[in-house]
Structures are given as structure tokens and as C-alpha cells.
Nucleic acid binder design. Structure first.
Length: 558
RNA sequence: GUGCCCGUAGCUCAACCGGAUAGAGCACCAGCCUUCUAAGCUGGGGGUUAGGGGUUCGAUUCCCUUCGGGCACGCCA
């Protein structure tokens, strides 16, 4: 039997052929192959007959019969049935499914990877926190979702660049500088003179102390030493930004998130990119002066009102460097750019896209893409937690990692649709029990590792075993689940929905645990034993591959 | 008031860009460890998918509307 595993696309082709024969005039009808929810409905189902009923003015069942008769013969299909209103249900031959075990063992860490990305360049920007304090839970969600999305896109064949954009220019940095300076002078947030816009967290005092003690910080590309001069605002600014960038780097490292590129807003100014963008926009004819300010007519591109580019005090608003930054990305050759941000930034989308359209550089209208995640609430002992010791007004990512660990934090933050608000229950994430889905999945992997270790045989030998005895309902389900994995990755990449990986894994782990409880692996019968061991070895591989997409470890024992 | 996201079991969430009887976990009830990890498994109760219209063979999904929650509406980022 020939090895076919992409049953979905194969069936799609077969049905297309049948369609051309049955109804050539409908040949352009899109053919949807889906997985039925119930096993009684077969392994795959096609609703083509129902779609054609109206245009052909025939009953769906008659069309279904004709389609089945015209379906090219192939050995991976066991039988085809008509059911319900006119569904065509396809049952795959057991041997064809069993072949997935070998594919998984052979492909190893590469199993599940696909080519829809065709090696094209995609830039994913995420986290992009202002360097004004430690990362908070929201940044954590961005980091988890963004990193997982990158992994998924990579697995789907995209050439991914991970990018972090520092807003290290602008008013918030002035506020930071002032706050640190005041701390250097011994003024605290309790003092009546502390400005409303000042940063109040304890970490500001840490920055001030380090500056006064003339400490040196290393932030990725630079070494900055505190000058200790209370009056030198420029020196304080440099030091504070470097100090907090280092702090964020450490948070990210603890979260096991790495970036390929760090872009600085300040560099866009010093390199003249901002000014050049402004000149281009003026030349484009979409700007005008009013009230001593320069405006961009974003209403030409779908915005509900025009936006100020240059304030009356001469400074630019944040979206100008944003447009300059995205123009740079375009020039760097990203056919696709995805920005993962908190939903509180959603108003920038229209503005940035409008600015890019106004430049008339041939940038597509919907470019760049955005994935916006909703707010995170942290729960502990059934109550909402709003503050941390160090940051004062918010819960830091570091607090979560320290309390519940990197794996659980990543899982919980990435496992839900970004569109939904998220409740992070610290007690649940910490619990080492069946309450906790992370351990549930990892536990499945650990159980398999133990069995394989106890067997102690040569794993290479599992590549060539006879799999025909894998016929139980448990085994059929697990085989099909593994066959589904590449499609899950592809769909998650297309939908920009990395949480689908987490959902899949939990489901898959549940199927395994049921199987584990119902079966024994180290049995007398050598053929049965080897077949089952090959199966669970493949399951462990898929679990590893899936967990690695989430950035979660797959322990050998727990 | 305007725009975006959301509303699914008591709680936290799924549902493959319209499919068949809406699924998991927690919690609750009843069971399963002298045999490969019980961080597990098996069974049970629990739903008018916020309400109301519409589109069609078929709607949690698409459209309209009402209600409720979040976010954003600045010459802030």
C-alpha cells in the first residue's frame, strides 16, 4: 500500500475528479473535507452533495450516489457511506492510518511541519514594552502568544523574524527620567510634590540607587555607567532606559522568549527616518497645517478623523515614528508583518495603515496584520490581585514565573484565544494535580518515557515493526489524532491562533490517558508489544513537538 | 455617544473560516491502584449557546436589533 497521510487534500482531489465527471459545469465548487465529530460518521466527511442540490435541482442523496460512483478507486479508502441529509462519509483503511506511526518516528521533531509559508519572510513584533518598568502580566500574554505564534508560523514553513520595538523616545521617557531624578534627590512618591505622571514603583528607587552608586549595566548592545550626577538629566535618561531594558531582557530570558531584532524608536529619529517619512507624507499631498500643527488626512484612508503628526510644540506624535518604523519593515522585505499587542492599542491600526497608504509605496491595504490580546486578570485565593511589591500598580510577569513556574505561566497565557479576556488563576496554575492542564499533558509524556525506559529495547527497532494489530478503538483514535497534527499547525498558522495547539494537546493527552488505563504495553506477545510501543513512542514525539510549539518542556519523569 | 473585542454548564474555556446528538476540565455524586507513574481512568447529573428577529437544506458561527461586560476614543504611547 502506498503511504498517503494527507487524506484531507487527497480526498479533496478525488472528489474534484468525481465532480468533473458528474457535473462539469459545477467544477469550480469549493470542496470541503472535514472531520466528523462522531466516529460513526467515518473519518472524513464531504458535504458536496448538499451544496450541489440546489444548483443541480436534484436530491442530495442522488448526487451523493453519483459522486461515489465516480470516485476514483484508491486503496486507502475502506468504504464510503451516505448519511443524514446527504453527507458522504469516508472510512480510511486501518493500514493507511497505521502508517502514521512510521512517519512520526521517521520525521521526529519535524513531524507536523508543513510548507504553506513557502519560506516567505514574516516579521512578528510582540511584547514591545516601553522601557519604563518591569514587564507586567499583559506583556506576558503578548510574549507567550507571540512566541508561540512564531513557532507555529515557523513550523508552517514561514521564515520568521521575532522583533521587539522599544518606545525609548517620547513623553513617557521624560516622565521616567524625572521620576528617577526625584528619587536620586530623596523625594518619594508619598511626597506632595511627586508629579501625577511620575512612576511610583519601588524599582524607580533601585534605578536611582544604581545610578548614584555609579553601577554599570549591560543592555544587549551597550554598556552604561551611572554618572551619579543628580542634575544631568541626559545621563539619567540613558542610564534609566538601559537599566530597565536589561531588567526586561532578564524577564524575557526567564520566560524563555528570545528575539532576533530589537528596534529602537530613538534610532528612527537619530537616523533621520522620522524626518524622511514626514517629508514623504507632505510630498504625497495628504497633509495640511492647522492650529500650528501638521495633520495627516487619515480620513482619506478610513479613519474617523484626521490625526496630528507634528504638535504645535514641534514634537511628533507617536504614530509618526510608528509609520516610519513600518516603512522600514516593508523595505526589509517582509511580505507579511504581524503585530501582537494589547487590545488597548487597537486604535493605532487604522492610523498606521493609513500612514503607510499615504506614502504610496505600493504597500497592500491590510498590511500589517494585527493580533490583539484582551486584558488579563490575575486571581489568587479567589480574589483579584492588582499590585506587586516591586512595580506597585500592576502584577509583574516575574511574579507569575516565580510563583507558578515558566511552563505553567506560558501555557496559561497562550492556551486561550487572544480575543477573549483571560482570568489567570494562580492557585490553579500552581496546583500539581488533575486540575492543571499543563501537568496533564506533560504527565502523558512522562508516562510514555517510563514505559519505554522499562522496556529498554532499541528505539530504532520500532521503526520497522508490524503495526497491523493496532485495531482497538483507542488506537484508531490516537492514530487519527496524529494524522491531524499537521493540519492543526497549518490552521493555527493561517488563523493566527496559537491557542489551537494547546487545545489539541489537551485533547490528545486525554485520549492517551484513556488508552493507558485501558491497555498494557509490556505484554508477552512480542508483535503486540512492539506495535504498541511504536505507537506510544510516536505519541510521545507528537506531544514533544506540540509542547515545544508552546515553549513548554516535555519532562521524562514527573 | 462612536469604534473594536466578548457573552456557550455553577466556575474556567473549546467547537476545524455554516454541518449531523454543542464538547473538555474544575466543582458535585458513584466507582477503579499486590501488575508499565492515581499529577491517571470509568460512569452520572448539569445547556432555550444572553434575549428577540432574519438569511437557508442546516446557525454557537453570517446579518439586524436589544441587554450585559471589557477596551479605546488626546497636539499620550
Amino acid at each position: 500500500m502506498s503511504v498517503v497521510l494527507n487524506f484531507r487534500s487527497h480526498l479533496s482531489e478525488l472528489f474534484a475528479q468525481a465532480l468533473r465527471e458528474v457535473s462539469p459545469e459545477s467544477a469550480d465548487t469549493s470542496i470541503l473535507i472535514e472531520r466528523p465529530k462522531q466516529t460513526a460518521h467515518g473519518d472524513y466527511a464531504c458535504n458536496l452533495a448538499m451544496q450541489l442540490a440546489k444548483p443541480l435541482r436534484k436530491s442530495p442523496r442522488d448526487i451523493a450516489n453519483a459522486l461515489i460512483a465516480a470516485l476514483p478507486k484508491t486503496d486507502f479508502i475502506e468504504k464510503v457511506e451516505i448519511a443524514g441529509a446527504g453527507f458522504i462519509n469516508v472510512f480510511i483503511a486501518p493500514a493507511a492510518k497505521q502508517a502514521v506511526v512510521n512517519s512520526v518516528l521517521t520525521a521526529g521533531a519535524g513531524y507536523g511541519h508543513g510548507h504553506v509559508g513557502q519560506g516567505r519572510k514574516v516579521g512578528v513584533e510582540f511584547v514591545s514594552a516601553n522601557p519604563t518598568g518591569p514587564l507586567h502580566v499583559g506583556h506576558g500574554r503578548g510574549a507567550a502568544v507571540g512566541d508561540c505564534l512564531c513557532n507555529v508560523l515557523h513550523a508552517a514553513g514561514w521564515n520568521v523574524t521575532r522583533e521587539f520595538y522599544y518606545n525609548d523616545a517620547g513623553v513617557q521617557i521624560d516622565n521616567l527620567t524625572l521620576s528617577v531624578q526625584l528619587r536620586c534627590k530623596g523625594v518619594t512618591p508619598d511626597d506632595p510634590s511627586w508629579p501625577d505622571s511620575g512612576y511610583r514603583g519601588d524599582y524607580i528607587a533601585d534605578v536611582a540607587n544604581a545610578y548614584m552608586a555609579k553601577e554599570t549595566v549591560e543592555a544587549d548592545d551597550q554598556h552604561i555607567t551611572g554618572k551619579g550626577d543628580v542634575e544631568d538629566k541626559e545621563a539619567i535618561r540613558h542610564f534609566a532606559v538601559a537599566y530597565l531594558r536589561r531588567e526586561q531582557d532578564l524577564d524575557l530570558r526567564a520566560f524563555q522568549v528570545e528575539f532576533d531584532v530589537f528596534s529602537l524608536e530613538s534610532a528612527l529619529y537619530t537616523e533621520g527616518k522620522v524626518e524622511a517619512t514626514v517629508q514623504k507624507l507632505i510630498a504625497s499631498g495628504h497633509t495640511y497645517e492647522q492650529d500650528d500643527a501638521l495633520w495627516l488626512r487619515t480620513t482619506d484612508f478610513g479613519d474617523d478623523k484626521d490625526r496630528v503628526m507634528r504638535k504645535s510644540d514641534g514634537g511628533y506624535t507617536y504614530f509618526v515614528p510608528d509609520v516610519a518604523y513600518h516603512l522600514e519593515k516593508w523595505k526589509r522585505g517582509f511580505v507579511r508583518v504581524i503585530n501582537e499587542q494589547g487590545s488597548d492599542h487597537h486604535s493605532t491600526i487604522t492610523r498606521v495603515r493609513a500612514g503607510l497608504q499615504a506614502l504610496d509605496e505600493g504597500i497592500p491595504k491590510g498590511w500589517p496584520d494585527y493580533v490583539l490580546h484582551q486584558m488579563v486578570t490575575v486571581l489568587k485565593n479567589g480574589e483579584e490581585v492588582k499590585i506587586s511589591k516591586r512595580a506597585g500598580s500592576y502584577v509583574t510577569l516575574r511574579d507569575l514565573i516565580d510563583e507558578v513556574g515558566c511552563d505553567a505561566t506560558r501555557y496559561f497565557l497562550a492556551a486561550r484565544s487572544p480575543d477573549s479576556q483571560l482570568v489567570f488563576d494562580i492557585d490553579l496554575a500552581k496546583s500539581q494535580s488533575n486540575d492543571n492542564p499543563v501537568y496533564y499533558i506533560q504527565y502523558a509524556h512522562a508516562r510514555i518515557s517510563t514505559v519505554l525506559a522499562q522496556w529498554g529495547g532499541d528505539k530504532q527497532a520500532l521503526h520497522t515493526v508490524d503495526l497491523s494489530v493496532l485495531e482497538s478503538d483507542y488506537e484508531k483514535v490516537l492514530l487519527q489524532k496524529m494524522i491531524d497534527f499537521p493540519t492543526v499547525i497549518e490552521t493555527a498558522a493561517n488563523d493566527l491562533a496559537p491557542h489551537q495547539i494547546a487545545v489539541y494537546l489537551k485533547d490528545f493527552a486525554a485520549d492517551f490517558h484513556s488508552y493507558y488505563n485501558a491497555s498494557r504495553f509490556l505484554v508477552e506477545d512480542e508483535q503486540v508489544k512492539l506495535a504498541r510501543l511504536a505507537l506510544i513512542a510516536a505519541i510521545a514525539q507528537v506531544l514533544r513537538n506540540g509542547l515545544s510549539l508552546l515553549g513548554v518542556s516535555a519532562p521524562e519523569q514527573m
